[in-house]
Simulated assay, not measured.
Amino acid sequence: MTKAAEFTYYGGGHRGTEAEFGRQAERFGIREVNFSFAGHQPAREKGVVLLSPEELKKGDISMEIVSLRMNRKYSEMDKIRKVIQSIFHMVNNGLQIFTVGWIQPDDTVKGGTGWAAELGKLFNRPLSVFDQDRNRWYTWKDKGWVEDIPVIAHKTFVGTGTRNLTDAGKQAIKDLFSRSFNA
């Protein structure tokens, strides 16, 4: 039987997906770490680690590279840069990545959440996305998305995604935790 207390969840405390991951982590007695930065007001305040400007720089990458990798341009460069930098810390610490959002035709995930998915691919981490349009989980395998029913199998994991979490997305997160820790 999996002991939930041996696990650590990494997120950013944003409303929507990350707040729901945090609630479920708390429900199951899982340690919660939410990376944040000056000026960010997380919806979830449990386990907040405020990243200094120096720590944020460890996750710095050219926004041109991010834009190319994600096949889109970003506005509000300063704010999105800090989000991208904090996502690096989440993925750098979590060995398994779960996101909730929408898989795009180019196999990226919509929004800033997509950077967590791209880092997961680059770092060769187990990566699963709950697509809110299709109401299904998909796991990245052999350079493509494969329908799957994932479980939290690594003691450090990331949960991130859209701020616009649907009821189906919320249920998918609850079911993920139940599958993983109620066995």
Rank of each mutant, 00 (worst) to 15 (best):
M1I: 06
T2D: 08
Y9V: 05
G12S: 11
G16H: 05
A19N: 13
E20F: 02
F21C: 09
A25I: 01
A25C: 07
R27L: 06
F28K: 14
F28Y: 15
V33K: 11
V33Y: 05
V33R: 13
S36P: 05
A38Y: 05
A38W: 04
H40P: 00
H40Y: 12
A43N: 12
A43S: 15
R44I: 02
E45L: 10
V49F: 02
V49M: 07
L50G: 04
P53I: 01
D60V: 00
D60C: 04
I61S: 12
I61M: 12
M63G: 04
V66I: 14
S67E: 15
N71K: 13
R72D: 01
R72I: 00
S75R: 15
K82C: 06
V83H: 12
Q85N: 06
F88M: 05
H89V: 05
H89I: 03
V91Y: 01
N92V: 00
L95Q: 14
I97C: 09
I97N: 10
P105G: 09
P105R: 09
D106M: 04
D106Y: 03
V109Q: 04
V109F: 01
G112W: 02
F123N: 06
N124Y: 01
N124E: 08
D131P: 07
D133Q: 11
R134F: 02
R136N: 11
T139Y: 02
K141N: 11
G144W: 00
V146L: 02
I149L: 12
I152T: 07
T156Y: 03
V158C: 15
G169E: 03
K170Y: 05
K174P: 00
R179T: 01
R179M: 03
F181E: 09
N182G: 05
A183M: 01
